[in-house]
Write a protein that binds this DNA or RNA. Sequence first.
DNA 1: GCGATTTATAGTGTTGACAGTTTGTGTGCT
DNA 2: AGCACACAAACTGTCAACACTATAAATCGC
Lengths: 222, 222
Amino acid sequence: MTANRNPRTASFVPVVQREIERMIGSGELTGGTRINESTLALKLGVSRGPIREACRTLEQLGLLRSELNRGFFVREISTKQALDIYDTRAGLFGLAGRLAASIITTHQLNGLDALIAEMDKAITASDIAAFYPLNNEFHLLLVEASDNAKLIELYPTLEAELHLFRRRGLILPGSMRVSNDEHRAIVDALRTADTTVAGRLMERHILAGKARFIRTLDQTSA
Amino acid sequence: MTANRNPRTASFVPVVQREIERMIGSGELTGGTRINESTLALKLGVSRGPIREACRTLEQLGLLRSELNRGFFVREISTKQALDIYDTRAGLFGLAGRLAASIITTHQLNGLDALIAEMDKAITASDIAAFYPLNNEFHLLLVEASDNAKLIELYPTLEAELHLFRRRGLILPGSMRVSNDEHRAIVDALRTADTTVAGRLMERHILAGKARFIRTLDQTSA
DNA sequence: GCGATTTATAGTGTTGACAGTTTGTGTGCT
DNA sequence: AGCACACAAACTGTCAACACTATAAATCGC
């Protein structure tokens, strides 16, 4: 997987960054482990310069932390921090709802409907692997409908950061169906341009996710 | 201002980062200008490596942007982007209020009272230079009172980003007094642990700032 | 044998140099 | 004069090497 050769049409930095993100997302790099710059550089066929720059970016994104003379580590976040992220995310998602309700287009609403339908299919097939990307796409569309650049920039980073905590395969049965029912209610509120209700429903949708998250924590500790 | 010599007790990167932030904040580096890595490296007495790493951090913080083969530029944000930041900031500040209302300590409340008193003094002296840092400190204390790590991390970056836009010295007469009245109302709501009112007042406090910002825009265009 | 100390190995933080790109300047042509 | 083109200077993106730190291994004293 040696990165693209010289023609200076792209920088190595974003390539390296995405690769590290992928490694974290796939569980290849797990919380607390150190990033070995030399080894990674060799593996990706680049020098340590671009690696370090990518790590600085990821540090700011909250996926890595740095320690003097010891390098970069995959961040591990505490339960409290994860819950804090849920609350902040709920606040931002609610704001997105209030903003989106008055300006969302029928085209965007149709797109949301289509995603809900696809998620329904995934649910009847009990296909969790299909459901998750659809769910993410749905959330992303909602945030984009707010037409607020800062929100659109910020929201995905919070989701990514939660992946640091989320142990795979801890899905409560029936949560997908409940979640999609909430999706339907949200789109209804947006369609009637009800800013207050849309905002409240979207905030609560994330807080419901937080509640499910807490329940999975109880399960694992038991 | 050549950075500290070798004893490897600190990295150059944060030093360089703060220096660039300072240059932007002081107007020494203005929007759109390119960061000349070699020149800056020479000036700070370090090599280009740490400079580039600091720039990556600042890129993620929203203060710089990068262009392939052309390097880093001081970001200039559009009026719409600035307004978007105000809205997001209002949402987060309101959230901070709702969270803080139920957990704020009397010690923290006293600290807020003290700052309000100091701001009053600055107002009667018409001392804008004294008012601003006090105002920032007040906002920071409020956010910290939320005890939400993500919020505490995120909020200051939004404020910093607005500095990219804010042309200095455009303060509406009387705004300081109005602002401090709002501060008093916020602290009152927090003291009575009224989450709803505190949240709403804090959100509106930022939106009032946004409104003042818009009025200064009208002034300059006229 | 076991703990403290020394030595060796591995890895980060930083540097200076090189290759390729962008940009400013000057030259020739019309 | 005006414009396209070629050339030179400036600068970025990347690399390989060096200095220093931290950690693992080995040695010594008990």
